[in-house]
Amino acid sequence: MKIVIADDHAVVRSGFSMILNFQEDMEVIGTAADGLEAYTVTAKCRPDILIMDLSMPPGESGLIATGKIKEDFPDTKILILTMHDDEDYLFHVLKNGASGYVLKNSPDEELLLAIRTIYSGGTYIHPKMATSLVREFIKKDKSIQSEDPLEQLSKRELEILPLIAKGYGNKEIAEMLYVSVKTVEAHKAKIMEKLNLKSRPELVEYALRKKLLDF
């Protein structure tokens, strides 16, 4: 594995280079002191793995460089190595193409595991940060579900929707549910409005997609 290390501290670059070069399957082929230099070295060396620090003052930060490098050199996998155990940093760099996130205070074995994991096509997240990632995923999933227009329908509207989709007329539905035809018509209008549907075919298609015909 050909590796480039980007960190603003020379002692950190030297220390990690010694650890990685000691491995039979790893070789450090370049180093950089900030994001801009990391881009230049990546363009020149085309490493398999780029180990990137997030904060590298006064030069360009790893946050900015990650997106640029991943866009222009997609074959280079980026492993973030940082002191920041902040989930906002984690989400940002993952969205910008990073394949892994490891804290600097992690043992050497974890760094080596992370490198080998992302080299083989996987994603590695420090266990402490992985918990935050899962928690955020669950929160976003619930948010997406709550935005489903189907949840805006009342219990009665949920009863009427599949009946309309199955082809029953207003009078038939009224008799089934022991309500007036006008009530059915009013509910039907509200269903169409809430689901932003314009015609019965659209309603049937929606019901099929949501698996409501057996409701």
Rank of each mutant, 00 (worst) to 15 (best):
K2E: 15
I3H: 03
V4H: 05
I5Y: 05
A6P: 08
D7T: 06
S17V: 03
S17D: 11
Q23F: 08
T31H: 12
T31R: 10
G35I: 03
T40Y: 15
V41W: 06
K44L: 03
P47W: 01
D48W: 03
M52D: 13
D53G: 06
E60T: 15
E60W: 12
G62T: 00
G67E: 03
G67C: 05
I69G: 11
D72I: 11
F73L: 08
D75V: 12
M83S: 08
L94P: 02
K95W: 09
S99M: 09
S99N: 07
G100L: 06
P107C: 13
L111W: 04
S120A: 14
G122Q: 08
K128S: 08
A130T: 07
A130N: 13
S132I: 11
V134R: 12
K140Y: 13
S143L: 04
S143K: 02
S146T: 13
E147L: 13
E147Q: 09
D148E: 15
R156F: 06
E159C: 00
E159W: 06
E159Q: 04
P162Q: 04
L163K: 14
L163Y: 09
I173D: 12
A174K: 02
L177A: 08
V179H: 01
T183F: 07
E185I: 06
K190N: 00
K190T: 04
M192S: 01
E193W: 12
R200P: 11
P201T: 02
V204N: 03
L212E: 02
D214C: 15
